[in-house]
Design a binder for these strands. Sequence first.
DNA 1: CCCAGCATGTAAGAGGTTACATGATTGC
DNA 2: GCAATCATGTAACCTCTTACATGCTGGG
Lengths: 184, 184
Amino acid sequence: MALDHALLVSLREKPSSGYELARRFDRSIGYFWHATHQQIYKVLARMEEAGWVAAEVQAGETAPDRKVFSVTATGQGELSRWLAEPLTPEATRDALMVKLRGAAFDDPARLLPEFQRHRDAHAERLAGYRQIEARDFSGPLDRQRALQYQVLKSGLRFETAWLEWCEEAMDLLHRFDNNKETNP
Amino acid sequence: MALDHALLVSLREKPSSGYELARRFDRSIGYFWHATHQQIYKVLARMEEAGWVAAEVQAGETAPDRKVFSVTATGQGELSRWLAEPLTPEATRDALMVKLRGAAFDDPARLLPEFQRHRDAHAERLAGYRQIEARDFSGPLDRQRALQYQVLKSGLRFETAWLEWCEEAMDLLHRFDNNKETNP
DNA sequence: CCCAGCATGTAAGAGGTTACATGATTGC
DNA sequence: GCAATCATGTAACCTCTTACATGCTGGG
């Protein structure tokens, strides 16, 4: 049920079409929740039927028609209800950890390219978050901005942790690489 | 497909029954992958049919019969193949982040109990990991142990990050609490 | 005697991924 | 002309969760 509420939050921040939401869920909002356009359209339809959101069709003269959704009072009520309801903390599930333990039953050095890729991906994300931070969160922040910044900070924190951990893991994998050149 | 490989790794570490695997996936291995017994039995059946694992039935004289699974050569081949195959880095999806952004459209202070619960849960997990660290990973480590330790270290790192971030978020939520007592 | 633990499953449903489908416009 | 972007969906499939189902043993 969490995509529903992620969409409600996103629509409260800015009423949008499904297409716009999909783009935001691939970019800025993507750092706290991810979804494809297929999912988004389905959930929007369900929420519209439930009366949580209402659509206003904007006929495009040149561009295609857009259905712009906003959160209704009912939808806001549902959002408030959900915010108060306790979450069950999510279970970790990371395939990279499985691989690292699996390295004991294979040549550990074969995992190095994988870890390089992951390290690079996390470095890239971290750089992206730092850009967003500099662009959107310097100077005084109102309440909404401050909360968004705190979410971004989790991204900064976790990507940093990933980066450091990947480096550490790569050192370990190197140590087990029997084919390494000791003296070039 | 990742549960399959998590089970293969776990069975390489120690041949086990479905029940045993389920317990391990709720405890020690739970810190890198999580699964219920229903899932596990289904995947084991599928992998047995595919020839990745083989079962030996141990008739219990007093206890119930157990089907103890081990990884076959085919299964090891599949594991090696999977280890070499690149993973697509997983998308983040955290409902707590959604809630924090959603706090802008509700009374932020109402989120405090939720964040307390999460902070406590992460503190507890961290304490658990530290116990495992002290119990299983002090002194010299062989290759397999060293890899397991590196996985545990991700748990230590991430739970610490969570803890710090939760504290930070709670400070922020306190700041927006209009009903707080300024001078007792 | 009853509950906790051991041990193995089936079934329904929700959520998510991937592939397929359509049609218009803008820029190269 | 062709590719990319805007814009909205359907359908099949896989995974995961939740509920249900069964039966035996050991300890209090």
